[in-house]
Write a protein that binds this DNA or RNA. Structure first.
Length: 681
DNA sequence: CTGGTGTTATC
DNA sequence: ATAACACCA
């Protein structure tokens, strides 16, 4: 061990590593190295995530990524401490005390739980006399940097992204990794052994290593491979359901194994190159790829400005939507037994591999919300549990988009036709045949709508509808009709709610309806039967394995759900002072969030950063240029920063609308405006 | 030029 | 679903 020679009883800096598992372009690490002796710390406290205890494949990734980081840090000379904890902040304090460290540096995160935890970390450690500095490592621009002409946050993606692409200063250039790190003294701060996978999960996890290589250096390889290969064809290939043409960077990016800024810069370099060659297709490919990077940025932006976006719709009308609470639907969807081949193929792939092409994610989630009318949070939770790149902010954005609950989301009344989508994304049926062996012998003509196939064709293909492959769980026409009914009920309820607000009666109606539907509690989350008879029998347990760990974890805390919501509900009106006196339940995670919002006016966000030099290239100048922006502020959501939250009803004041449904429901908008006027006057 | 038809994207 | 866009007669 490189021991604490340089540190000598203190003066060292703790770098708190989280989802920034890299040594390259890691601003907190770089700054710490510059400041003197360094101790890197990783704290595993999954219980802090509440419902969002990481799923099996996600934990598998983390385990391997962490191992690689640890060995890299070790070879640079740094010590790496790992701690098992149920309270990260307390553990941090212990680490600081036992190492005599005087500084704590870490990089920003933007999910709701981190916003609260990191804020608390900063407060408590500052109280202890520790210098706390935090940095932007996860985004091209901090959420508070990207505003419209009036200094307000954008509410649509395209506006947001256009602004990002035309900022007066470029995203910071990526920094090189430190050449050598002097370690602080860790002799009095032992590490805990971290356990990321249960015995029962190991078999299933072994399969993952065939397809994926976690870790920062593998992330760099994946990036290089992509930028030098598939990127140029990205635009042409993006329509294919086969995932072979995507960047495969999302899990790497989720864990911060590679910096988005590096991704951005490398892609941009290629773009300039191709533009000079007159390769417009290549140029366009980069635009499209960067757009998906932009969506990731936007998801953080949304999460920062609306910290409940992972559980509450941003447009509030939807809270009156009569969801169909049907766990059999839910189960059929998870098992890939809906009777719609493209949907089922996607769900089987997700189940088996933890991966899904973005297109297919849209197909299956849209089916979930619009055809099955299941509550979107269930679907999001399942994605969380099963996706290798599960990411709270990105997934929340995705599901809200599909559900039509953000201003630029899909229309409420739009139902995608899986058959049509099937021929679009999988014209030859290869994808369906790969994941639905029971349909493998069906001719392409019928592969996406076997229910229409002549009996003779089905027989020849060995398909028995209702036996080895289901009939459609819901007919599309029926789904359309049912959706229309549900929507008109939603509008009626909304109108009634507004009317009752005006009368000053029935104030609570909206609240009671808004209680989110708890995640299913049944133990039947595991698969109770073989999904298909013909499925490859190579590893029949695989299906069960996939299900058990994650959903079991959610079970343990399902009972907390209602109170959690009450909290979130209270915080949704942070501007209303009378509310502050109510809901005192302290000690709850979300309560902390609530308290933070209320007690904390941290409006120091709109720092003008016009001074940024776009062309810093060395670590030194780069971070000194960045110090002002990164040095002190821990991102914490505060009502004062999002004046435009008024625009959303998510926040209970019933304002806000997407242009698309404005047109179809002008009366609703009038009511809203009227109410707004009456309030103002 | 113009209207008709087909294609594509929508976070 | 639908609007923007391209292409064509």
């Amino acid at each position: 061990m490189p021991s604490g020679g340089g540190g000598g009883g203190g003066e060292c800096t703790i770098v708190w590593i989280r989802r920034d598992l890299r040594i390259e372009d890691n601003p907190a690490l770089a700054a710490a190295v510059r400041a003197g002796p360094v101790i890197a710390v990783f704290i595993w406290a999954p219980e802090e995530e509440g419902h969002y205890y990481p799923g099996r494949v996600s934990r598998w990734w983390l385990k391997h990524s962490l191992a690689q980081l640890q060995s890299s840090l070790g070879s640079l000379g740094a010590s790496f401490i790992t701690k098992r904890s149920t309270d990260s902040v307390l553990s941090l304090i212990q680490v600081v005390k036992s190492t005599g460290a005087t500084q704590l540096f870490f990089n920003h995160l933007y999910d709701p739980i981190s916003l609260v935890r990191d804020h608390r970390a900063k407060e408590l450690l500052t109280e202890q006399g520790i210098v706390v500095r935090t940095f932007n490592a996860d985004l091209l621009y901090e959420p508070w940097e990207v505003n419209d002409d009036q200094g307000r946050p954008f509410s649509t993606f395209s506006d947001f992204w256009n602004k990002c692409l035309s900022m007066p200063y470029d995203p910071a250039a990526p920094m090189l990794p430190p050449k050598r790190i002097i370690s602080g003294d860790v002799s009095r701060c032992p590490s805990d052994t971290l356990v990321f996978e249960e015995e029962s999960e190991k078999g299933s996890n072994a399969l993952l290593a065939r397809a994926w290589s976690p870790g920062w250096s593998n992330a760099n390889k994946a990036l290089t491979t992509f930028v030098n290969g598939p990127l140029i064809e990205y635009s042409v290939n993006r329509r294919k359901a086969d995932s072979a043409t995507t960047s495969f960077l999302s899990p790497h990016l989720h864990f911060g194994e590679v910096s988005v800024r590096k991704v951005f810069h490398l892609a941009r370099i290629k773009q300039v190159l191709w533009a000079n060659e007159g390769n417009t297709a290549g140029e366009e490919s980069v635009n499209l790829f960067l757009k998906s990077i932009g969506l990731r940025e936007y998801s953080r932006y949304i999460s920062f400005n609306h910290p409940y976006s992972h559980e509450k719709p941003l447009l509030g009308q939807i809270k009156f939507f009569p969801w169909i609470i049907d766990e059999n639907y839910f189960k059929a969807w998870r098992q890939g037994r809906t009777g719609y081949p493209l949907v089922d193929a996607g769900m089987r792939e997700l189940w088996a591999t933890g991966w899904l092409h973005d297109r297919i994610r849209v197909v299956v989630s849209s089916f979930f919300v619009k055809v099955l009318q299941l509550p979107w949070r269930w679907g999001m939770k399942y994605f969380w549990d099963t996706l290798l790149d599960a990411d709270l902010e990105s997934d929340a954005l995705g599901w809200q988009y599909i559900s039509g609950t953000i201003p630029d989301g899909r229309e409420f009344d739009r139902i995608d036709n899986p058959q049509v989508e099937g021929y679009k994304f999988d014209p030859n049926g290869e994808y369906v045949r790969r994941w639905l062996p029971e349909l493998a012998r069906l001719p392409t003509e019928w592969i996406h709508h076997p229910w229409n196939a002549p009996e003779s064709v089905l027989q020849a293909a060995g398909v028995e509808l209702g036996m080895n492959y289901p009939l459609p769980i819901v007919e599309l026409d029926a789904a359309k009709a049912r959706l229309q009914e549900a929507l008109s009920e939603m509008w009626q309820q909304e109108a009634a709610w507004r009317a009752s607000i005006e009368n000053g009666t029935a104030e609570g109606l909206g609240d009671s309806l808004e209680t989110p539907i708890a995640f299913p509690q049944d133990t039947q989350m595991e698969v109770d039967q073989e999904p298909t008879r013909n499925n490859p029998a190579t590893n029949p347990r695989r299906y069960e394995d996939q299900m058990v760990p994650s959903m079991t974890a959610s079970l343990q805390r399902v009972e907390e759900e209602p109170s959690m919501d009450r909290n979130s509900d209270g915080s949704s009106r942070p501007e209303v002072p009378t509310d502050t006196a109510m809901n005192p339940q302290p000690g709850r995670q979300t309560m902390n969030l609530l308290q933070t919002f209320r007690n904390n006016n941290i409006p120091q966000f709109n720092i003008n950063l016009g001074l940024q030099n776009a062309h810093e290239s060395t670590a030194e100048s780069s971070s000194s240029g960045r110090r002002e922006r990164d040095g002190g502020v821990v991102p914490v959501w505060s009502p004062s920063t999002s004046s435009y939250s008024e625009q959303y009803v998510g926040e209970d004041n019933g304002i806000g609308s997407s242009s698309s449904y404005l047109q179809t429901h002008p009366q609703s908008h009038q009511l809203i405006s009227w109410r707004r006027l009456s309030q103002a006057g």
